[in-house]
């Protein structure tokens, strides 16, 4: 996977690529690199099987924009919640039901900031990072439509 690299203390690490990742190992490595943190929150999004109707999920992105967009979102989360660091991994390409699509991890002195920053990251990654999901269903391919509630979720921040 391409690695956009960290930015020193309170670094945001962003990785976008087609390879699988190890949620446990990524979370452990991230947690081990957070001096001063008292809380780490990790979230992973998985491909739902939609009651067996889905045989794969294809994720397209805008490669030249994706890293910049995520770095900006992560940078804002870091500044707002005083994170010691955050990690965003997002896969592209074809994924099978049950596979992890993406993860975020956040670290802060206290848990409230780590939880809030993780939710903020998820809300913004859903609607402001240039990814598009296509469901390959038994009945045919369907582009996933953005939901009004996803857009509305941004308003709370």
């Amino acid at each position: 996977m391409a690695d956009d690299g960290g930015r020193g203390g309170g670094a945001a690490r962003v990785r976008v690529g087609d390879g699988a990742f190890d949620l446990g190992a990524e979370t452990a490595d991230f947690a081990a690199a957070q001096p001063g943190a008292g809380a780490v929150v990790a979230f992973a999004g998985l491909v739902r099987d939609e009651e067996g109707d889905l045989h794969a999920l294809e994720i397209e992105h805008f490669p030249e924009m994706t890293g910049k967009a995520i770095a900006a979102i992560a940078g804002e989360a870091g500044a707002r919640w005083g994170l010691t660091g955050c990690l965003v991994i997002h896969r592209v390409g074809r994924l099978a039901p049950g596979e992890a699509i993406m993860m975020v991890a956040t670290a802060a002195r206290h848990r409230a900031a780590a939880f809030a920053a993780a939710e903020f990251l998820m809300d913004y990654l859903k609607s402001r990072a240039p990814f598009w999901k296509k469901e390959l269903r038994r009945s045919g391919p369907v582009w996933v439509a953005a939901r009004a509630e996803d857009e509305a979720a941004l308003a709370r921040w």
Binding site: G45, M102, K126, S127, A129, P130, F131, K133, A146
Partner: peptide, 10 residues
């Protein structure tokens, strides 16, 4: 200039 539907990441 890029055109696309509303994004569906996460």
């Amino acid at each position: 200039v890029a055109f696309f539907p509303p994004m569906t990441g996460g």
